[in-house]
Design a protein around this nucleic acid. Structure first.
Lengths: 223, 223
DNA sequence: TTTAATTGTGACAGCTTTGTGAAATTTCAG
DNA sequence: CTGAAATTTCACAAAGCTGTCACAATTAAA
């Protein structure tokens, strides 16, 4: 689910937006001013920022300018009616939408949805992921993460895991695995599979539990 | 006196704006659609453009994009209420102001005056850029900057980087890269990719970290 | 309980893949 | 046509993956 950074100095506003956003299933984070927002963006990635213009410490448009120096994150600006409208245009900030206070949370959410739908996160939808609890296989990027951390699998480990997962719940003999993962022209020992299963298990940490040994038969992935 | 280009398919609108503008002492010129506007801008310089969004042949926002490729002229957009508002923000055009139809000519003139007053600080032409920390790719100008300094990439390096970035997070085999970056008719060695990756990495300096080797597979851009 | 079969595991030599510098070739502007 | 820049190939170095083996641990059968 997309992560939203809500930036406003009024706690009330943050709460309202947060509540509505979380109701829609978004993750949220808050910042009280522009400085804080910049800091938070340095440390983590958000999918969209909802930012007030008038704030202490660092105003909204300066913050956007700063954040956009390093990251391309869509922004929806909030501001009091009229007052800051010219400034927004005047500075030609790359802002994706603009909502005037007081706003209806429903409208804001609709705009957030719209911005997320078009924009940069088009790549997000292209990425194919398979998840089992904290084990996540990003097929598109050929990357496996365990509880959010990237696991460094070797090519064979990845291929083996991918084949097992694709055939989850199905008993797979060593012969079958060799044929499918190694290739029909592999001339080696059956036990090679065992070694790679061992390595794979060690790479998967606690999620080794998904790889089940079928004595006298082979292995299977069971989630 | 400043010269205004008025672009709208309705003669009525053009006339009204023209009359008021000339009363204020501005010179005016007219175009019926985006295409005409682009043509006229190629031939002469204007100080400001007042442009409708919805027009036959070439819509306003495409016209602005085209014109801004070569000239930095401030723009005030016109459009029917609400309808095109999203589009404006959606495409992040470098527009200096925005007036909703039906508008009062007096208000439009006031905005024209205001935009002209802010100086031709429209030096910030809207250029399409992609950023990852200090790595900035100016797509419009085919230029890459690293921490603000222009990196001297060769054409292949740029093409390769651009393709990787467009497909960030996606595992790309050498074959795929050859096909997409070099062209389907390239009959060379796979390892050519490696050499160009090497060169690209060296050009990117510390941001070489974004280019990830996928052993046994290929490469990907990961930001 | 013993025994035999099967699977788990650590170590490592050899192999495959990737990184890299340099040379050969091609492209292109002048 | 010439020379500089870009591209491609090549060979070797470096990195890191694989497959095998020996032995330990586990399981099932007798």
């Amino acid at each position: 689910m997309p992560k939203i950074l809500i930036v406003d100095d009024e706690k009330m506003i943050r709460n309202v937006v947060k509540e509505y956003a979380e109701f829609e299933g978004y993750e949220t984070a808050e910042a009280e001013n522009g400085m804080e927002a910049v800091e938070m963006c340095r440390k983590q990635d958000f999918d969209i920022i909802v930012m007030d213009i008038m704030m202490p410490r660092l105003d909204g448009y300066s913050a956007v300018k700063e954040i956009h120096k390093t990251k391309q994150i869509p922004v929806i600006m909030l501001s009091a009616r009229g007052e800051e409208y010219d400034k927004l245009f005047g500075f030609e900030i790359g802002v994706d939408d603009y909502v005037v206070k007081p706003f209806s949370p429903k409208e804001l959410l609709a705009r957030i949805k719209a911005v997320l739908k078009r924009g940069t996160s088009a790549d997000e939808t292209k990425i194919e992921k398979i998840k089992f609890e904290g084990l996540e296989i990003n097929v598109t990027g050929r990357e496996v993460t365990i509880d959010g951390k990237v696991a460094q699998l070797t090519p064979k480990e990845y291929d083996l895991l991918f084949y097992l997962v694709r055939n989850k719940g199905i008993a797979l003999s060593r012969e079958k695995l060799l044929e499918e993962v190694w290739g029909y022209d592999f001339y080696g020992d059956d036990r090679t599979v065992d070694t790679h299963i061992k390595m794979l298990r060690s790479s998967l940490g606690e999620y080794r539990k998904f790889i089940v040994t079928l004595r006298g038969m082979g292995y299977k992935f069971e989630a």
